[in-house]
Design a protein around this nucleic acid. Structure first.
Length: 697
DNA sequence: ATTAGGG
DNA sequence: CCCTAAT
């Protein structure tokens, strides 16, 4: 079945403005979890952020901090996958590469928006490539206008060339395919995250379809739309990871975090747009702890270290300003106590689509079959050539100011919309709205922009409005606007989590090994410098969050993660994208379990031997200062379990066996310090007694 | 922020 | 690991 008149518009996700601050507790956890959060932006986050932005918009568009552009352009994202044989000169092939070479990469146009990001992101690529990533090349460009698109592409190209050596080629290719591939030789697959298909025949149909309808699952989506064929070729772009991210995900990934493991984690969690809205809805009043916490928890990663102003101030630079912990702490603190369980409930409400591993395969294996095959000629016309334009990208303000930080486009992950070409603009709006509202929970309305102009007449057909398959859709954009009637009450900036600026992601976090930290001269235990050091090193390596689902992390992966793209947050981009279709959307997931390695145990034991059992903070500083994911609480817990482990029979122990020698030391240290503690207590008691007596006398 | 302890 | 409560 060939859909020749099918138009795809892609929303690639929401790009959320600066994130809200995390709660205090969140912050705390942030020490080890941060990264995760970044990735985790989920429906929740989106909603919150968007809502906040919108609200702000409504209130005062002029304020620097309030940045939501009045109109959010939905950008059309196009992903083009390059076909294997397309260019000989081009090394990039679609085929999965088994080797270490990374065949795929994805560039997010968003990068353009954020110059700084660009640098980082691109730079990061090489790593990715090295790490044996296999994927497809995809270039995403978005801009409000076609012109921008062009520039964006160029930008990308130039950047890639300059910054990433080998990558450059690929990047170019991607772009090329994007632009030139007018002959949809079944080679290129263009994918739009959010697709709206226009069919001549179809009636107006609003597909408010299942929220869940994952773009991946054509069947589901189709049922609602007249035009059935949605080959959703969601191209998954596997970026250095085992699991292949779905459609939008990859892009984001690159953009935001190629790197952080946590991201992975996060990403997995997020994404499902669906129904969480309610949580957001009532903008929490200050008093509502629960909500706050909820939000906070989600954001904590993102939590802003930056104040809104700060963000803005950075002028072109998106670099996050780090604040001192204390400051952050205070800010976030109020949000803190929302019970985790409750949060979870909310989160669970929506379930994400199944993993798309399959889709990935399909695409990779048979690129041609996808859209091109079916829609062949048409496709290239509509999507191939112009698709990207729609305001996907945040428009990049070249001038200077903080404006840059503002997000202008929304990317809506996992949304798939099909609508007949004869549908009216109004229906288009509604359709989009339905999808979006599912995510945002209402309070917003959708606007359609063409060539920068708003199409106000809802009764015009798409065709009449100039939105047809055979036209370039570069200029097509969608906006999310506050709906006066439904807009939630204004939130108070202070309290509103939504408004919080993003937390800064940690800058590349690669902890240089700091060998000596642990060393101490004196302890009863013989110091093992090497061991200790090793421990630290290891720790540092792991510090980022591991990806949750797949526990096993390849070194390569790790490396990738290790590089934490700082920019993402800055960009405020918070492109909330990660649409990893993780099965569970529970955004707020437990931290990944990270069993202590023997090395870590060794370091812990050594530190405790010296410091005792009541000074976990010091222990952390001494032996795990570089292991951001190990908190003093973790260390304390580990010690607890170690003591327990040491007391039980070896047969009952599980997990990586801890050398008996260590366990013995654990017991002895524990006994020793317990005794010390007892003595202390005794002493104190006696002292007080003495005092009392004296007083008495 | 830390610490301690239960879950 | 998480969560609370008490510091």
């Amino acid at each position: 079945m060939v859909l020749q008149k099918r138009l795809d518009y892609g929303f690639n996700g929401y790009r959320v403005p600066p994130t809200p601050r995390a709660t205090r507790s969140a912050r705390r956890r942030g020490s080890f979890r941060k990264k995760v959060d970044d990735n985790q932006m989920c429906a929740f986050d989106l909603l919150a952020t968007v809502a906040g932005k919108l609200l702000l918009e409504g209130e005062s568009s002029h304020s620097s901090s309030n940045t939501v552009a009045g109109k959010e352009d939905c950008a059309i994202v196009k992903e083009s996958v390059k076909k294997e044989q397309q260019d000989e000169d081009n090394p990039l092939k679609v085929e999965p590469c088994n080797q270490g070479s990374c065949e795929s990469f994805s560039v997010v146009s968003e990068l353009v928006t954020q110059a700084s990001v660009l640098n980082h992101g691109l730079k990061e690529f090489p790593h990715t490539l090295n790490d044996s990533c296999s994927g497809f090349a995809s270039v995403v460009t978005t801009s409000d206008f076609s012109q921008k698109v062009g520039s964006a592409e160029k930008l990308v190209n130039s950047k890639s060339k300059i910054e990433c050596g080998s990558l450059a080629d690929k990047v170019e290719v991607g772009v090329r395919s994007f632009r030139e591939t007018s002959h949809c030789t079944f080679e290129d697959e263009n994918k739009l995250q959010i697709k709206i298909e226009l069919a001549k025949t179809g009636m107006v149909s609003v597909s408010n379809g299942p929220d869940m309808c994952s773009s991946q699952d054509p069947v589901v989506c189709d049922r609602k739309s007249p035009v059935v064929v949605s080959i959703d070729n969601s191209v998954k772009l596997p970026l250095c990871r085992d699991h292949v991210p779905r459609g939008s995900f990859p892009m984001q990934r690159n953009n935001v975090k190629l790197v952080s493991r946590d991201d992975d984690e996060n990403s997995s969690g997020c994404t499902q747009p669906s129904t969480k809205i309610k949580a957001f809805r009532p903008p929490p009043r200050i008093g509502d702890r629960r909500i706050r916490k909820l939000l906070a928890s989600k954001y904590w990663k993102v939590t802003s270290k930056l104040k809104d102003e700060e963000l803005i101030n950075t002028d072109g630079e998106l670099k996050p300003v780090y604040r001192t912990r204390k400051n952050c702490y205070k800010r976030q603190r109020s949000l803190k106590d929302y019970p985790f369980k409750k949060r979870r409930l909310y989160e669970h409400s929506s379930i994400s689509n199944s993993d798309g591993g399959i889709s990935n395969e399909g695409i990779s294996s048979s690129p041609g079959k996808g859209l091109c095959g079916d829609a062949g000629p048409t496709m290239h016309g509509a999507t191939g050539t112009s698709a990207c334009g729609a305001g996907q990208c945040a428009s990049f303000q070249y001038r200077d100011s903080r404006v840059k930080l503002r997000i202008k486009s929304f990317r809506i992950p996992e949304l798939f919309i099909e609508i007949p070409e004869t549908a009216t603009v109004g229906s288009l709006k509604r359709t989009v709205m339905d999808e979006v509202s599912a995510i945002l929970g209402g309070g917003l309305r959708v606007g359609v922009l063409l060539q920068g102009k708003k199409i106000r007449d809802d009764n015009k057909t798409l065709l009449q409005s100039g939105i047809s398959h055979d036209k370039k859709l570069d200029a097509l954009g969608f906006t999310l606007e506050p709906n006066p009637s439904q807009a939630p009450p204004p939130l108070c900036p202070e309290d509103c989590p939504f408004l919080l600026s993003c937390d800064t992601p940690q800058p590349l976090t690669r902890y240089p090994p700091s060998p000596n930290v642990v060393q101490q001269g004196t302890s009863d235990a013989s110091p093992d410098p090497p061991v200790t050091n090793v421990g630290n090193l290891i720790e540092s390596d792991h510090d980022s969050a591991p990806s949750p689902p797949e526990m096993s992390i390849d070194k390569s992966t790790t490396d990738c993660r290790a590089l934490v793209a700082v920019p993402d947050m800055n960009v405020e981009a918070l492109a909330v994208v990660p649409m990893r279709k993780s099965k569970q959307i529970d955004v707020v997931q437990r931290r990944i379990r990270r069993p202590f390695s023997v090395t870590e145990v060794e370091a812990l034991v050594q530190a405790v031997e010296k410091l005792g059992t009541g000074r976990w903070r010091d222990v952390k500083l001494r032996a795990f200062d570089n292991a951001k994911h190990r908190t003093y609480v973790d260390l304390k817990d580990k010690w607890k379990t170690l003591v327990h482990t040491a007391r039980i029979s070896p047969q009952q122990r599980r997990g990586e066996p801890v050398p008996q020698e260590l366990l013995d030391r654990v017991l002895s240290a524990h006994a020793y310090w317990s005794q010390q503690a007892a003595k202390q207590q005794l002493k104190q008691q006696t002292d007080t007694c003495h005092l009392l007596r004296e007083v008495h006398h």
